[in-house]
Design a protein around this nucleic acid. Structure first.
Lengths: 150, 150
DNA sequence: CGCCAATAGGAGCATATGCTCGTATCGTTC
DNA sequence: GAACGATACGAGCATATGCTCCTATTGGCG
């Protein structure tokens, strides 16, 4: 036998989360691949579509991503003409991210793929279970550790 | 008001998972920083400590990580002398990863930090809730999508 | 024995993630 | 209006993640 029964690392909350995130991330990536989008890219376009243009920082906060990470994630999208990143007229420090026409149509192409992936996941995992899991995960963000502070 | 109430993206299982993983990952990283380890690096050393030496692929499977990702994650650890990566005598295709003495002591340094982080998380999130969350996340891995297959 | 599918991995690429440090700007305060 | 702290970023760095294509090796099969 292995020493699995005595492995305390099995109880690591972070490892459990990362494993599941890698797994589901790859699954969603694959589901969205026909539209030429990664799951994260879809999230970005979807948020821009739902909330309209905003600064890089606001967009980053919206999906709990670091500002600098969002900035580099926007580069491939801007290169493909799916989003525009323009200096703000009102505040010249800020750069405003907006969904370009191609980005909107790309998002609309990906939307049914996303919906089908959601449905497939919830079919296997349980619709109520999935909703509870999402609520639970949102609760993790409210534990108040604020790892980004100082 | 925003259009938040009509944002279907709020129900994205993958986004919920990634957000929480980024958040908790940063929190665990910070907790382990005094030991000079990232959370993922700690997981690797911990698994090697619990299960002994193994191939790169086996180690990758153990934490649901891609083989090539594990290979590159091992490089900084090998550079610091925390692990050794040596060709297998039995199978010259395989490379065996083993915990070096420095790696064991580093892991033992990080262990109380990890335990304290676990305790702090479970204090705020709820011990039973955390256990249920981990079980739920393990369940995600059993949905059978196998995103790595062709 | 020779061939071949399967296995284990490396190289190179692209994106993802987030840090530190530095820059530009803004708003307030004296 | 000059100084200063806060805000919004960018650049450069390092690690994380995983893909495709490639090589080396193994084990089985005719």
């Amino acid at each position: 036998m292995t020493t699995a029964a005595t492995d305390p690392g099995e109880a690591c909350n972070n490892l459990a989360l990362r494993r599941a995130a890698r797994y589901l991330g790859a699954t969603y990536d694959r589901a969205l691949a026909p539209a030429g989008l990664r799951a994260t890219q879809f999230s970005i376009l979807q948020k821009l579509s739902a909330y309209g243009e905003m600064t890089i920082g606001s967009l980053a906060d919206m999906i709990s991503m670091d500002r600098t990470t969002m900035a580099s994630n926007l580069k491939p999208l801007a290169r493909e003409g799916l989003v525009t990143v323009e200096p703000s007229a009102a505040d010249r420090r800020a750069r405003i991210v907006a969904l370009a026409p191609d980005g909107l149509s790309r998002m609309k192409t990906a939307l049914p793929l996303w919906r089908e992936m959601q449905a497939r996941f919830e079919e296997r995992f349980g619709q109520g279970e999935a909703a509870r899991l999402r609520a639970c995960l949102d609760g993790v963000l409210d534990t108040g550790f604020e790892p980004w502070a100082e």
